[in-house]
């Protein structure tokens, strides 16, 4: 075997990536970092590298790293994205990347936002199942039959796969204009709940969303739909809620 490489040139130093990352809380500044560029590197990989090697105090959130949990969303070069499934190659602009916390939510520290309002609005939009109440609830009841091909089941199916990442919430201008706007994710969830024919109070969903700051305030910008990483269409769901609310109101069903 011949000896090779004794006078071979040294391997080129890895290409570097210039990254700016938000540091601080609501008030703060961008800090510059240089991170080795890697093929197939995701934005979350970059943030993790910075935290492990350059800035151990950097705060950020992630859990699953495979696009399931919805905890890793950040603003990357101005757009809200799920960082664990976003390849650097797709978002890099002129060799640079700027990473900030999600818009429309208060910043706790660095890349971590306080998501309580986001989840409170899910509750306010009545995005949960309401079953038959009472001591005999469910006893002796025929199980509900929901045909997979029924229109309601299809609508619920289309809206159900939300991972609660708040990317749509950060993308929506109406959320940034009105603090009481329920936002695309909560309303999308409400649409899935309203389409559950087993629910005992479907009109209750409409009462919760046909209010000031509810579905009727959506401008149909479609920014939420454009950015949703799992390709849901909150815009479509909200249009459905508008229609259902309007019909229920005309029938006098929304009076509480």
């Amino acid at each position: 075997m011949t000896q090779q490489g004794a006078d071979r040139p040294a391997p080129p130093s890895p290409a570097m990536l210039d990254v700016e990352i938000w540091r601080g809380g609501q008030e703060g500044h961008y800090e510059d970092f240089r991170v080795p560029r890697d093929e197939n590197q995701t934005v979350l990989d970059v943030v993790t590298y910075v935290q492990r090697h350059l800035a151990p105090a950097l705060a950020y959130r992630f859990a699953c790293r495979v696009g399931m949990c919805g905890s890793c969303a950040m603003t990357v070069n101005g757009r809200p994205r799920w960082t664990c499934r976003t390849h650097v190659a797709r978002v890099i602009e002129g060799g640079r990347m700027r990473i900030a916390p999600l818009r429309n939510l208060p910043v706790i520290r660095d890349l971590v936002t306080d998501m309580s309002t986001f989840f409170d609005k899910w509750q306010a939009a009545r995005g949960r199942f309401v079953g038959t109440e009472g001591a005999d609830a469910g006893v002796g009841h025929e199980p509900a039959r929901v045909r997979p091909a029924s229109p309601e089941r299809r609508e619920a199916d289309a809206a159900i796969e939300c991972i609660n990442c708040a990317v749509c919430y950060a993308a929506c201008d109406v959320v940034s204009w009105r603090e009481d706007y329920l936002g695309p994710a909560a309303l999308n969830r409400a649409w899935a709940a309203w389409n559950d024919v087993r629910d005992d109070d479907r009109t209750g969903v409409l009462r919760a969303v046909a209010v000031a700051g509810g579905c009727l305030n959506c401008h149909t910008h479609q920014s939420c739909t454009e950015h949703c990483p799992v390709a849901l269409s909150p815009t479509h769901s909200i249009a459905g809620l508008k229609r259902a609310s309007m019909q229920a109101w005309l029938r006098g069903e929304l009076k509480s």
């Binding site: 509810g214 009727l216 229920a248 929304l254």
Partner: peptide, 8 residues
């Protein structure tokens, strides 16, 4: 927006 205003 209220349903009344929306319809109007």
């Amino acid at each position: 927006m209220s349903p009344a205003n929306f319809v109007l």
